[in-house]
Design a protein around this nucleic acid. Sequence first.
DNA 1: TGAAATGTTGGGGCG
DNA 2: ACGCCCCAACATTTC
Length: 460
Amino acid sequence: MKTLVLFKNNLRINDNPVLYNGSKNNTILPVFILDEHNIKKKLGSASKYWLYNALKSLNQSLNNKMLFFRGETLSIVDELIKKYDINKVVFEETFIKDDMSLQKKMESFLKKTNIKYHSYNCTLLWEPYSVLKNDGTPYKVFTPFYKRGCLGGKEPELPLGRPKEIKYLEYDNNTNISDLNLVTGYKWYSKLDDQWDISEKKAFKIFTNFLNDGIFDYKKGRDYPSKNCNSKLSPYIRFGMISVNRLWYILNDLKFDKNIEHFKSEIGWREFSYYLLYHYPKMEYKNLQTKFDNFEWENSNEKFDSWKKGKTGFPIIDAGMRELWQTGFMHNRIRMVVASFLVKNLSIDWRLGEAWFWDCLLDADYASNIAGWQWVAGTGSDAAPYFRIFNPILQGEKFDSNGEYTLKYLPELKPIPLKLLQKPWENLEKINYPDPVIDYKLSREIALSKYSAIKTYTEK
DNA sequence: TGAAATGTTGGGGCG
DNA sequence: ACGCCCCAACATTTC
């Protein structure tokens, strides 16, 4: 059968159910469509950069047979079916609102044309609709979701490996990745080229290196940004360059270890994010706890700007924001600290922070980004309580006690004695570094009093 | 997957 | 030897 294989967010050969099943006994036409008609949330700049390189790498693995299109999915698929006399279409099962409605449109379209079609879950270990409480309603708290719902539920699908053989339709490929206009204009991203090796092969290599080293101090070490205990797999996972099923089963084969279990639970948090967005799609733009709709954000442009540029005058915050700008990545603990700072100390709506991360992070993931911000902002269902306000000075002293991370991104602070590194304003010697944009203590008090003003509204 | 305020305890210095 | 104060160090509670 002539099979159209649609790639979307799973840009890999190994354990890719769409490719594996699509190419079994079939000749295939591998296609990627960048659809900005059906999807409201356009990709951020960093994501486009990653996508461009991921597609390039995937295309190489597919003998440069991939076709690239930019436009409306249905009309492109329709044309391809006619042009190449396609009799089957396979594509990824989706779990995000806009993607799902596009998927539905496509399915009903294909139904009418009498073309065979099939979707495969390539993205999640547990489909969100398959994990529910005994009363049929969705979980709202991570631990029972993960322990009872996921671990106590059905086993995730076993990884499929690579297709034994891929046979392609005969055609001249007259499309090009550059047609997608993913990387154009000012080459801001050239700084990233020597920091990241964006290929499926590298994703697996990073994982095996992580298994040999960092993972054995993961539970504690993951909180320290200058340690190398984080996998840094997130952008690869985001674009499906390595499958979570494959990760899962490799981890399961290892000897039981609390660090490994912790890493698995972080994969669980990703599942939980998709799960929440699936069951509560309004989370994309609305506070899950509606009482926060009455919260009065200050939303000062100047403060927001200082945060984005890494010029707040709080070293751990600025180091994080500069790491983000320079590398397209930010250490997880620091993400929480800068997010808490934006929302609680600068009094800026989490949606603005979410948008900035969405644009700058190479691993920007629709569900994880939104769920993560609502978690920190205290507006989500199983969120950190609002009154949990990270103290940037203490967090810096605790998790970057030797200043290694801070100084890596803020070398101008080297003259400051280590004891004052996280509060350089107490240093008498003048250096070229911004004064703090806010008074920490005062901003905390204001945040708490604003919170107590809305807290009386009943939830839901 | 906090921080700050408040409370408790216990050891040392001292009259 | 005793009471008193001071203050870490730790525990609890409050935000």
